[in-house]
Amino acid sequence: MRGLPVRDVTGGPGHGRGAMPVRGRIVAGYDGSAGSAAALRLAAAEAAASGGLLHVVHAQLRRSAYALLLPPGAVGAAAEEAERLVEAARARLRQDYPDLRVRPAVVAGGPGSALVRAARGAALLVVGRTGPGPGGVAAHVMAGAACPVTVVGGEAAPPWNSGGRPVVLGFDAAALSPSVPFAFAAARLRGTGLRVCHVRCPGDDPWGRDADARREVSEALAGWRAAHPDVPVAVDVLTGVDPAARLLDAAADAVLVVLGGGGAGRTGRIADVVTRNAACPVTVVRAAGRLAVVG
């Protein structure tokens, strides 16, 4: 279970408009908590739908922690209990996805750093919203992972399939290239539509009217829409001084929110607020040049 080499499955610089999505490795952080279990379920559904490999990564905990996570009984060494925890998770996954390829791994070190390392060359990293340490694991991996990161909040995350709910894309011209193909692929994989939301801040928008903004966004998406004619697209122009708040409003009826950016700056602040508060899963796509798209 330990230290298996992984193949680089990300696309190169040409992996963009009209490119076929990568059926790659999806990494799920799992520590036995309810939040990480929700993340694991979403990652499994994503991998099963895309034909990818699910890589379940567990950072070994203190021996005493496993007494709370495993069925009652004698607690052995931490390494043994860690192996037992991930094997139990794999057995549960087999019941729902008997054909899913699952690679469990127990690793040493802090969970955030371990997941960043494990996600090198991955198509997607999925984590629960909460976690140990300042800011939690989610904040750590969003700052350090090179691949897209999906953050799942709450113990009872919405089901992966859309149920008619759209994928919401937060439109940001500065982060347009990496986030758009991921959002189209996610909508296609779920058999749902894509709602593209551009938030206009009064007095701080290059487009004077809503109609102008809607036209500019639509024109920017024209190539992607032509490449994905099976994905219905709606463009919404929202006005507000707090873009994160308006995107959270849009997220209330979404199956997934996709944002560009991350890290420092305006896009990073928006991504941080949305991932901390959205009821649905949120994917932050900040990698440029080596874009991985699941689907």
Rank of each mutant, 00 (worst) to 15 (best):
A74D: 12
A213P: 10
A139Y: 07
S162C: 06
Q95D: 13
G73A: 05
A279M: 12
A234W: 08
A88W: 01
G11W: 09
H140P: 00
V6P: 08
G73N: 04
P158I: 02
V6Y: 11
A146E: 15
V27T: 01
V102K: 01
Q60E: 15
E80H: 13
R190G: 01
V27E: 02
G289K: 11
S33M: 03
A244C: 10
D212I: 09
D272N: 12
R215T: 11
S36E: 00
H58T: 00
G18H: 09
G24A: 10
Y66I: 05
R17H: 13
A252K: 14
A91L: 10
V235L: 09
P148H: 04
P166Y: 02
H58I: 01
G260I: 06
G133H: 10
H140L: 13
A59S: 13
G261R: 07
V151L: 04
H55D: 05
D242P: 04
W207V: 09
D205I: 08
R117E: 13
D212G: 09
T239A: 14
G131M: 07
A186Q: 12
A79K: 12
A38F: 02
A186K: 04
A79G: 13
P132V: 13
G154H: 11
S36N: 00
G153H: 01
L69E: 00
V57R: 06
V57M: 07
A244Y: 02
V180W: 00
L194C: 02
A254Q: 05
V106M: 05
E80T: 14
S50M: 00
G240E: 12
R92T: 10
L54Q: 02
V255R: 14
D204G: 12
P178M: 03
H15T: 11
L70T: 00
G12K: 11
G131S: 04
T239Y: 04
G29T: 02
A39W: 08
E83T: 10
R276N: 11
D205Y: 08
G208Y: 10
A37Y: 03
W207N: 11
V102W: 01
A264H: 14
P158A: 06
E216T: 14
A118N: 03
R117A: 14
R25T: 10
G261C: 05
A67G: 10
L194A: 00
P159Y: 04
L115A: 02
A105D: 01
G112D: 01
V152H: 06
R190E: 02
A45H: 09
V257H: 06
L248W: 12
P72I: 08
S177L: 15
R269L: 14
L40I: 00
H140Q: 15
G193F: 04
R25K: 07
V196S: 05
V285R: 09
P21D: 03
R63Q: 15
A183T: 05
V274F: 05
V56C: 01
G14T: 13
L125K: 04
V152K: 08
R214K: 14
G51Q: 07
L4R: 15
T130D: 15
A114M: 01
L189D: 05
D272G: 14
